[in-house]
Design a protein around this nucleic acid. Sequence first.
DNA 1: ACATTACATCAATTAAACTGATGTATTATA
DNA 2: TATAATACATCAGTTTAATTGATGTAATGT
Lengths: 288, 288
Amino acid sequence: MDIDALRTFLAFVDTGSFTRAAQQVCRTQSAVSMQMKKLESDVANPLFVKQGRQLVLSNAGIQLASYAKQLIALHDEAYKQLKTSAGQVRIRLGCPDDYALSILPKITELLHQLIEQLDLQITCASTTELKNQLDQGLLDLIIATRSPSSEEGYFLHASSGVWVKSKEFSYHRDMTLPIAIFMRDCKFHQAAIEGLLKTERQFKVIGCCSSLSALDALVKNHLAIGAIAEISKAESLIIIDDPSLPALPAVDIVLLLANHTHNPISQTMVKQLAEQFVNQDKLVKPPA
Amino acid sequence: MDIDALRTFLAFVDTGSFTRAAQQVCRTQSAVSMQMKKLESDVANPLFVKQGRQLVLSNAGIQLASYAKQLIALHDEAYKQLKTSAGQVRIRLGCPDDYALSILPKITELLHQLIEQLDLQITCASTTELKNQLDQGLLDLIIATRSPSSEEGYFLHASSGVWVKSKEFSYHRDMTLPIAIFMRDCKFHQAAIEGLLKTERQFKVIGCCSSLSALDALVKNHLAIGAIAEISKAESLIIIDDPSLPALPAVDIVLLLANHTHNPISQTMVKQLAEQFVNQDKLVKPPA
DNA sequence: ACATTACATCAATTAAACTGATGTATTATA
DNA sequence: TATAATACATCAGTTTAATTGATGTAATGT
């Protein structure tokens, strides 16, 4: 199937007529007629059915219309991108929402230092989702969490899980805990729930949040205490120092590179990037 | 950009050589060379850089590789679909997971009665997600919930929210309630949480489930009581009749049709389908 | 009945793609 | 260091495909 013919086909879908489609794609009516005939023979199915002297889409035609729209959209996106990115290195970076404020800015800065003419595309999603997209080749590089025991990726930062509250929230040990946690695919979700169930302590889940900003909003408005990584803590929030609360796991934050053969950024560069990050990180927060 | 040229391009990405790419696409080396030259002039960017007597992908080339893979994959999927579906009507039906057991079978049966040579593609996801896909033209028809006050879609069934438990689960009024609920985008999630907070009753959220089967599993294993639509209730479960539990809202289950101009199924057919469903539904469960 | 609209078809033309031979630069070999 | 081999580029000729403009056919409107 030819991109050009599909575009003509969509012009017909749009106008309902070969004659008007021809105008739209700047060809003659007979050219359109022949293009569509070829398309029909390509897919070995009639795409149109006669209705009086008009043509309307057949069932196969309706199916093709949906596909053609997606194909042309993807084609045009690719084309536009390629034409406008002369000499640029495009890197598609994924970052979990909860590290967007803390980790992302430095990574962005280091990437720009490392690569001239950088065209950085940033996607926020959960670590699970980001890993999927990395595997599918839709991302080149992601910031992700791993268990400290694991060896995958390039180490950036270690952060322990903490319980946080707003200054105004009056916390005492025997209250029913209103808690705000991330969705199930977050390491802290399970640890918090399971930990609390073991303590026999009363609690209410105020919200299962899919983003740090949502969770932050609940905590900042004194509706709940939150279970997050220490590095994700907003300045205005306070870590709750209560050993009777279940411990939350420590996580490593790492850089994960897609294993495409052709990657805009190499293993060596990512390694270098991670090392630079760790060095700067030490200067800011000297190890205890 | 030509599909054929992109395929050749991917053959180069694969093999790293024009000569071998030529073999892969059954052309001569010079044909490949010229195709790639045209592709480069199309995107007005060099796709390759010399490395000795070899060529390797440029930055633009790396970008195109990712796009080309997606484009060819989509093209081939469309092509395959079109070729194999001679005379078939393909309908992409979306169904929320929690109505898959109750509503979906009848709808499927009625669709097959209504349409000969039906090629039915069924997707399960949350109502919100399904509506998105419907708007994007990725689905033709979905089963969805609406508030009973709303008028959207074609009515299928009214169901009230109920609290359910397993037979073995010993429920009494002053226990701390272990509850299993759907994710936030479900109408029962908010109603359950907010309702319980108002009652001042102690509860623990055992799980925020994204599917009925997950929620069912928790309830059937006596780990929690669940908040679901009555129609989603498995036979082995029991409705908890306790007025002190917060009331869960009633929902209408409806059929929603995409408003593409070219839809494989028409408004009239969907209307007819919904009416047939309602009639059969009455016979099975006469109104109180 | 006659004009009009809409698509199909045909032959001629135009444009594009492919081949096979040859050229140029690089790398391996002896 | 000559020589062979490898890899891509280029060119001219050929083949293939697409487009045009004119004409044909069928349905619809006046």
